[in-house]
Design a protein around this nucleic acid. Structure first.
Lengths: 230, 230
DNA sequence: TGTACATCAGTGAACGCGCGTTCACTGATGTAC
DNA sequence: TGTACATCAGTGAACGCGCGTTCACTGATGTAC
């Protein structure tokens, strides 16, 4: 009915692509204020950009394609945040920690973006090459490289870095998504809590590797007792 | 339009409450096949029960109230699964592990229920007493009691069990929700992966407690080196 | 034992709404001759 | 230098749909007298 923003100036010939970027930005902005991607409609996005709904279809096949574009934008932003935080940290374990902290901070700082990117069912899930796409995602690759670096200096047992990467990702995702889904829980200092979870995950992974895999509760108890005896 | 199930027999006087339970069960069943709670409508639920949509409002104030009833049903079921798995395990760390594994198995086995219960924005989030309600939730209480038991036998440093409980919950939630959100990742053996994450979290928490809190990367590296020298 | 009546568990039809998407179109812009 | 024309970036109106919820009602059931 009423338009919230003024109508956008029509792009001149050859500058059609410009609208595409504006649409993604507008959708991202609207998503930041919504519970999920269902709550952001093509009509709202069009209105925010100052254009009519059919214009969206000049640049995206359908709504799923638009959401997907937003998600890949979010992942790119996440990678930048992680790289910025860890670039200058020499120690691979310190870098891993910096990455993890940046990851959680990004998630908590952009909860709705993080939610859409990692907690909603992915519309292109079944497509071929989808797995490769995730595993080739910049943030994931950088994270795994650092896991490999930790293996090289002997912090983690030398092995395929993929499972360990998934394991540590699960830890970071766990604290991030729980803080987002249940913000009313007594998290106290968000960053300190995230750090504890990440440190415990890395330390536990290192020690489990040292103990030769997945120790049983009795083994763990015995080992802990041995430690305290020293 | 067409009804998928036959019309339900009308309850006799005083048995009105019976429909309430049938509605929750039907909603749960429909939710199991949907991406999220938006995808399950009052009309679908009514149709599945064999009743007209307005009948739902005889038992629930609105759709949110119905979803909330389903969620609390799911949490109760989760608690039963955890208790069944851990009841006979004497060692508190073993019990914690059994609880954690049961938690992840439940989540992976009922992905949509788990998703609605823990990954969707909660409609009653802002209400007073909501926090107390979560913290008094059966599964949470049982989990925290076991963390306390681990502290009592010296596995974790003696302290307030709440932060450690949240920390371990985050680990379990992390691997569970990542497996659900990204089922196409190379998880290989789901249960073994979950076990590794849970063991690492518990072990890391225990060791961090032993090292007196949150160790720095350098401290961790030095400590690991010391371990290997023995 | 009979009957008027209150109660209860529902029904049927409709409300106004916003959605994704399609279709035929318009009108400015640049280009070929 | 002028003009016909293809192209491009959109527009306007409509499609059919399913949604949550409300309202006035119905008709079986049990109860009071």
């Amino acid at each position: 009915m009423t338009q919230t923003t003024s109508r956008r100036k029509r792009a001149s010939r050859g500058d059609g692509e410009q609208l595409r970027a504006e649409i993604v930005t507008a959708a991202k902005g609207l998503l930041a204020k919504s519970a999920n991607s269902d709550a952001v409609s093509i009509r709202m996005v069009a209105d925010a950009v100052g254009v009519t709904p059919p214009s969206i279809y000049l640049h995206f096949a359908d709504k799923d394609a638009l959401i997907e574009a937003v998600v890949s934008d979010v992942f790119a932003e996440l990678d930048v945040a992680m790289m910025t935080a860890g670039a200058s940290v020499e120690h691979p374990l310190g870098r891993l920690r910096a990455y993890g902290l940046a990851y959680v901070k990004f998630a908590v700082g952009h909860p709705e973006h993080y939610r859409v990117a990692t907690m909603e069912r992915c519309p292109t899930e079944g497509e071929p090459g989808h797995l490769d796409q995730i595993l080739a995602d910049a943030a994931f690759v950088h994270f795994m490289e650092t896991v490999q670096a930790c293996m090289n200096v002997g912090i983690f047992a030398k092995d395929d870095p993929l499972p360990i990467t998934l394991q540590l990702w699960a830890a970071a995702h766990g604290i991030a998504s729980l803080m987002i889904a249940k913000p009313f829980l007594p998290w106290d200092d968000v960053e300190a809590m995230a750090d504890r979870v990440l440190c415990a995950a890395a330390l536990g992974t290192a020690v489990a590797g040292m103990l030769g895999g997945n120790p049983s509760p009795d083994q763990i108890t015995a080992w802990l007792d041995g430690q305290r005896d020293d």
